[in-house]
């Protein structure tokens, strides 16, 4: 058997292995959220059925994003459970009046303006279309931080190749453009980069 193709193939195989298997593991560092938060449990025990009941719009139409500690305090002013997360929430955040430093999976760069009101209220998009059915899960996902860009893996999407993605996987500019194109909604640069 010829030696040269074998060595070439070996180099090729190592590079493919490194590129497809090792690289994603090295690129992303795993971070844990400050608290174990379970969407499903909260929905079941509190009777919350709409995302907007906690992730609300303000009176002026802007999106408040992650609920402030004041909303948590309404139920958790004192410990109502025995878990470590409950103790951490009450002792570390509610009693000192500090906001919980959640790691935001969908955080975009500062030069991106994404109006939730336009997408949710006017275009009637479901939250899950961008955020996955995360609100129905009973686990807190590990936040994967891109070591180079500094943003969450959710922006690129779980698939390193970005092939065969579900519609909610990925929040790159091209994903926004694809969605707009599918819905025949064209916006210029200044629509998002104000």
């Amino acid at each position: 058997m010829a030696r040269t193709p074998l060595v070439f193939g070996l180099g090729l195989a190592v590079a493919l292995l490194v590129g497809w298997v090792a690289f994603p593991r090295v690129l992303y560092v795993q971070r844990h959220q400050p608290l174990e938060f379970r969407h499903k449990t909260h929905a079941e025990k509190s009777g919350i059925v709409q995302c907007s009941e906690c992730h609300a719009f303000r009176d002026d139409g802007t999106f408040a994003g992650i609920p402030s500690i004041a909303i948590c305090t309404a139920c958790h002013s004192e410990r109502i459970g025995t878990t470590n997360a409950e103790a951490t929430l009450v002792e570390n955040y509610i009693k000192p009046g500090q906001e919980t430093p959640w790691l935001v999976y969908a955080r975009q760069p500062a030069n991106v303006w994404f109006p939730h009101a336009v997408h949710v209220q006017r275009a009637a998009l479901e939250c899950r279309e961008c955020h996955s059915p995360y609100g129905e899960s009973d686990e807190v996902r590990i936040y994967q931080l891109n070591r180079v860009s500094g943003y969450s893996r959710d922006i690129w999407g779980p698939s390193i190749s970005r092939l065969r993605r579900a519609p909610h996987e990925g929040m790159k500019m091209s994903d926004c453009e694809d969605c707009h194109r599918r819905r025949n909604v064209e916006v210029g640069c200044i629509g998002c980069h104000q």
Binding site: G19, P109, G150
Partner: peptide
């Protein structure tokens, strides 16, 4: 040299150069 050529060719078929190009461009904004 042949191994390196194979590895280089292989890298082009991985996300490494393309993903790093994207990430570095975002990093340069920060």
């Amino acid at each position: 040299l042949v191994w390196s050529a194979g590895a280089t060719a292989g890298l082009l078929f991985t996300p490494v150069p393309w993903k790093l190009l994207d990430d570095v461009s975002i990093w340069s904004q920060n």
